[in-house]
C-alpha cells in the first residue's frame, strides 16, 4: 500500500541529508510512527529494504519506533492513553478529545558515518 511511497520519501530525505552532512554510509534510519498514521511497520520496513538497493543507503536498516495514541479531554483536562482507538475520556466520558501523541511520521535520527 502506501508504505512503499512513505519508504521512498524516507530514502529521499536521508539521501539529501547524507550529502548535506557528508556521510558516506548509513547503518540504520530511526523513524517514529504514530498509531494514527495507520502505517504497518513491517510493510514499511519491507518497502524500505526493497527500495534502498542501488541507492547510497544500500544495506541500511529501518528501525521503526511505534508511538501509541495519547489524548487530552477538552472537558475535564484528563490526559490518557487511547486504547483500541476509542476516543472517549475514561474520566468523564467526554468525546471531545485532543490528540497529543500518535500522529507522528518523523525521521528521528540516523546511525551512520
Amino acid at each position: 500500500m502506501h508504505e512503499l511511497a512513505v519508504a521512498r520519501e524516507i530514502i529521499d530525505i536521508v539521501q539529501a541529508e547524507m550529502v548535506r552532512q557528508n556521510l558516506h554510509r548509513v547503518e540504520s534510519v530511526v523513524v517514529r510512527i504514530g498509531a494514527l498514521t495507520g502505517l504497518n511497520a513491517d510493510a514499511l520496513a519491507f518497502g524500505f529494504e526493497a527500495s534502498v538497493v542501488d541507492t547510497p543507503l544500500a544495506g541500511a536498516r529501518l528501525d521503526v519506533q511505534q508511538v501509541p495514541i495519547k489524548a487530552k479531554c477538552r472537558a475535564c483536562g484528563q490526559e490518557d492513553a487511547v486504547e483500541e482507538f476509542v476516543f472517549i475520556c475514561p474520566c468523564c466520558g467526554g468525546t471531545d478529545l485532543e490528540v497529543i501523541q500518535g500522529e507522528e511520521l518523523d525521521i528521528d535520527h540516523i546511525l551512520g558515518e
Partner: peptide, 16 residues
C-alpha cells in the same frame, strides 16, 4: 566511526 545524526524531519514534509 558510526555516530548518531539527528534528522528530526517529517517524512511527508514535502507533501505537507
Amino acid at each position: 566511526m558510526t555516530s548518531k545524526v539527528p534528522i528530526e524531519k517529517k517524512v511527508l514534509g514535502k507533501n505537507d
